[in-house]
């Protein structure tokens, strides 16, 4: 059995579809069935939909799994993986998957493979590919132990397709944990376009020099109907919120258009924008590595360029 698991808030979303798609193809290659497990508020809806997209069994793991950090999710997935004798458990490589993956693998005496970008079956063994050295290289790894708990990089695996058919949703309760980690409070999800879904992203980096500069990017993003992203340096400097960070340890995005403004183009940043249709770079340094990735480049101080761009777009706006 291969398990695909998600924790999306609004039913089966893009992350869930990708994880399920990977599981269905892996299951077909190994001759294994796929079970889909959904955690959280919309678990039943997500599980029901997964049943029509190739999952032989669909589980809704109900309960407030987030209240214990990742503990509730880990405990319930471990139980399911043991019961189904899973060879592999696939998760999204987001902030939650990073918490669950290694610990779930450890409890199952397996191993985690994080940020996987592909998997193939070679001589009956699974060969996983993952970026290393910040995306400057790729490594192929195999496990000596089973199961493998893999976290999958967003955008690297194609989505599950509707195939008809349905699986009866089996409901389980997330176990109550010992309370060693207890949620006290959290920020409300921000309204507006999520970075992962934005068609246009205006991202700023170390070259912006201040938090006020990000207000200009907000305005530019607004005019383009897009969202604001940031590099690690910009987040580290306190100019942009951590959930705006794009890259290896931030969001993986796939907009049509990605403006990289005052961003050098370090491999760890590029790791997040491989799915962008076109990158436009604005940078004072003609040798900045970002120009090796960008489709269009402007070698100019953003302070001169961005205000004029904003003015031009404002003028053109109806």
């Amino acid at each position: 059995m291969i398990i695909a698991a998600t924790w999306e808030s609004g039913g089966l979303g893009q992350a869930g579809r990708e994880v399920l798609g990977a599981a269905v193809r892996l299951g077909a290659a190994l001759g294994d069935d796929v079970a889909f497990a959904a955690l959280g508020m919309a678990a039943v809806d997500a599980a029901a939909e997964a049943g029509g997209c190739g999952a032989a069994r669909a589980f809704a793991l109900e309960g407030d799994y987030a209240a214990s950090g990742a503990e509730g999710a880990i405990a319930s997935l471990a139980e399911l993986a043991r019961e189904l004798e899973a060879r592999a458990v696939l998760l999204a490589a987001d902030e939650q998957g990073g918490e669950i993956g290694p610990r779930l693998a450890e409890r199952l005496s397996g191993t985690a493979v994080t940020h996987a970008t592909s998997v193939e079956v070679a001589d009956g063994r699974l060969l996983w590919t993952r970026p290393v050295f910040g995306g400057k290289a790729f490594a192929a790894v195999t496990a000596h132990v089973e199961p493998v708990v893999a976290t999958l990089r967003r955008g690297a695996f194609s989505s599950a397709e509707a195939m008809g058919g349905a699986a009866a949703v089996e409901t389980r309760q997330v176990p109550v944990t010992d309370g060693a980690v207890e949620l006290i409070g959290s920020e409300e999800p921000q309204s507006g376009v999520a970075l992962e879904d934005a068609a246009v992203i205006v991202a700023g980096g170390g070259g912006l020099g201040s938090g006020e500069a990000f207000a200009e990017l907000e305005e530019l993003a607004g005019l383009l109907g897009g969202a604001v992203g940031a590099s690690l340096v910009a987040v580290d400097s306190g100019w942009a919120a951590p959930e705006r960070q794009v890259g290896l340890t931030g969001k993986v995005v796939s907009p049509d258009l990605y403006f990289a403004i005052g961003i050098s183009g370090a491999s760890q940043h590029l790791a997040g924008i491989g799915g962008a249709k076109a990158v436009v770079a604005v940078n004072t340094d003609p040798d900045a590595p970002i120009f090796n990735t960008a489709k269009l480049g402007v070698v100019m101080d953003w302070k001169k360029f961005v205000p004029v761009l904003i003015e031009e777009l404002r003028r053109a706006a109806p």
Binding site: V113, A137, F138, A139, V141, T142, V145, N292, K295, V298
Partner: peptide, 18 residues
């Protein structure tokens, strides 16, 4: 638990239109 089977540097040559 994990064996490193291979490591390689991907080819990425892209042309930027300035």
């Amino acid at each position: 638990r994990l064996e490193l089977a291979d490591v390689w540097v991907p080819e990425v040559e892209r042309h930027c239109e300035l």
